[in-house]
Write a protein that binds this DNA or RNA. Sequence first.
DNA 1: CATGAATGAGTCTTCATTCAT
DNA 2: GATGAATGAAGACTCATTCAT
Lengths: 220, 220, 220, 220
Amino acid sequence: MSVSVNNTKELIFEAAIELFHAKGFKGTTIRDIAAKARVNPANISYYFQGKQGLLEACLIRFFESYVLCLEEEAKKLEWEEPEICFNRAIKKILYYQSECYLLTRLVWREITIDSQVSREIISSYLMKERYYLKILASAVLEEKKTVLPLSMFIIQLKGMLTMPYLNSQYVSEVWGIHLQDSYFIEKYYGFIKDWVGATIGSRRDSAYVESLQPAALKSV
Amino acid sequence: MSVSVNNTKELIFEAAIELFHAKGFKGTTIRDIAAKARVNPANISYYFQGKQGLLEACLIRFFESYVLCLEEEAKKLEWEEPEICFNRAIKKILYYQSECYLLTRLVWREITIDSQVSREIISSYLMKERYYLKILASAVLEEKKTVLPLSMFIIQLKGMLTMPYLNSQYVSEVWGIHLQDSYFIEKYYGFIKDWVGATIGSRRDSAYVESLQPAALKSV
Amino acid sequence: MSVSVNNTKELIFEAAIELFHAKGFKGTTIRDIAAKARVNPANISYYFQGKQGLLEACLIRFFESYVLCLEEEAKKLEWEEPEICFNRAIKKILYYQSECYLLTRLVWREITIDSQVSREIISSYLMKERYYLKILASAVLEEKKTVLPLSMFIIQLKGMLTMPYLNSQYVSEVWGIHLQDSYFIEKYYGFIKDWVGATIGSRRDSAYVESLQPAALKSV
Amino acid sequence: MSVSVNNTKELIFEAAIELFHAKGFKGTTIRDIAAKARVNPANISYYFQGKQGLLEACLIRFFESYVLCLEEEAKKLEWEEPEICFNRAIKKILYYQSECYLLTRLVWREITIDSQVSREIISSYLMKERYYLKILASAVLEEKKTVLPLSMFIIQLKGMLTMPYLNSQYVSEVWGIHLQDSYFIEKYYGFIKDWVGATIGSRRDSAYVESLQPAALKSV
DNA sequence: CATGAATGAGTCTTCATTCAT
DNA sequence: GATGAATGAAGACTCATTCAT
């Protein structure tokens, strides 16, 4: 019996991720999800305390593992080289996002929508992310004695990490590339790693980045 | 009172863009828009044939000017240097998106949602975009005798052009940068231009890109 | 100018009759009518004091001429033979209904719908109709010394007069007969006249009718 | 609580029939029905997929039984006398229509309105009706060696069968006769049966009918 | 634990009508 | 006399949620 229970909950979860991804949170009805999961709609309220709760469960599931990628490597900073930890964190995140790319896409998209709810959950995870990214990035920059402003570096990195997912519609529909393709991820990781290396290692590249910093951020 | 007519329609438009941007299309009610625009809700159906029509008007308004940026430069290819046209097209797009960044963000986000409606509008514009991008990009690559695969080059370019908008939530909320800041745009343009130059000019940079190409695309 | 005014009013009228007939009063919008008549919707309220007023105008236009057919012949009873007047009234009604069969159909159908409005208009005309029919029928029956109950005779007559119009959907759609076809009307008139003759002239036929009278009506 | 389920659905049904009959389909609101049935308005969409679905359910309910009256007798033609089957079919229809005379009236009225919806349902049933009527009528006419044109015979019959219902407003309001009165039905059946007998049996009566046939139908 | 009937709040939309021009 | 922008009332419908079984 307990198996079937977990089963029901998990079935709902998977159906929800697919549908939230395809049609958006607001565009998905609880009946759509129940129909796809082949369960009774009432179960959704039962297991997740409503549709909103189901979305929050999605957010939590995504961010818990996501933040863990950063947290683990941040903790290793004590006894390992910063650049290694940093690159490993990036790699972990890329692979994690690739594994659950539907969830990834929906999360990065839905958090841009101001639904007034689950704002606290999102904020708290983004704070954690920012905290660990700062630790990791500043360790690398310090080691390399790079004068590159931290904020701009992190913003660019974030952009690179999420870009394929936010653009995946275009990437997959117009050009036929699939994000879960491990070959793509591998190459994309190499691309970012090189960018990081160039950015923190050479004057030339970092100059681009530095010049990007608006006046308002100079003091951050 | 043609002034008031345009006024009402335009007021609705502006309110819609702000609200669609903030709360998403599905999350915005016709009453929200009417209240913000201080007009009667029925006017929305009157002027735009319903909420869906209002979204389509947003899409059309955005894409018409967007595609024009590309079209104009594609036509200049006959008597001007490809690289100049190409860079000017990029600059135009960046400035255009910066001017109406709320509209830009909502469009790039909403088209990732499968609403089964206005799919035709979106597809037709993406086809046009693809067509002109191909013309411009292949002209540049040909001139430079670069063996870089076209598709990957365009995908990356697209990613760079839309990234600040898709990430703007993060960019502005967590780091306090504003996309309409002309300083930011200017620098970001320089960044992309350099990337293009490096990509099509040197072996080293283009190697990154080439390596990104998945097997399936090798023959494109 | 006055020509164009009348024109507008008449155009609205004709469009309304067609549309009320085809789609029903409730199913027709003021904009439908305005579009078909190629006039501005506001004119309908202007000329007819609203949609309801337009329907009432239809009713009045129909019934005024309809009742006149009966009234004229009822008045001739003083100096002409009852049966001649009676048959002429029937003929007039049949031809009148045939001339404006769209209006006829819509009136006979719409008055069966309880719209709480224009009830007074309808009642007043039905009273007039009943009054003249009674005068005409009783004159005929008296002359022939027929003991046939008046009410049943009139009901049957009414049924025969309106039947082709109430059934016209079936008649025209399934069988391809057109009501405005003068040949059809001519024959149908002959049919009714014969029925009347048989009913008031012979014992046999009237027996059918008498037997139809329910107990409740015996004393009417 | 299967009892309460059927109850709710049936309550809606009955309320709908009364109101559609009295106020017309378009003139009846979903709230009217819900209020009369003392249920929640949302149940109507829940059980009948919207107001239109409710009307279609009415049509189907009426026609299924209606067509059955004809079908059953058509099947008996193989081993019973045509005239007996034919008359029994007529009797069944009259009694059926009398039993549910509100439904009967609303159906015969609403199908004359061009709502572009449920047109398929109506057409399909009218085709069936026509098919069985043809079989039954032609069997009778053949047996009697009557040269009477089939189409005109059926049209007249149809007129007689529906007339009391299409005219019931007049019949009941102005004259006080009630259609569900079994005495009335019994007599009315006798009336039609005699008409049929006279029509197919004697030269005199059939001559009336034959003369009614417009030129266009002579060759049918 | 699972069901499905039932609900009420809220949404989009339609439409007759009005009014300034 | 004619227009068309604007309105408010009202309608159908959707949907998340609840509750008895």
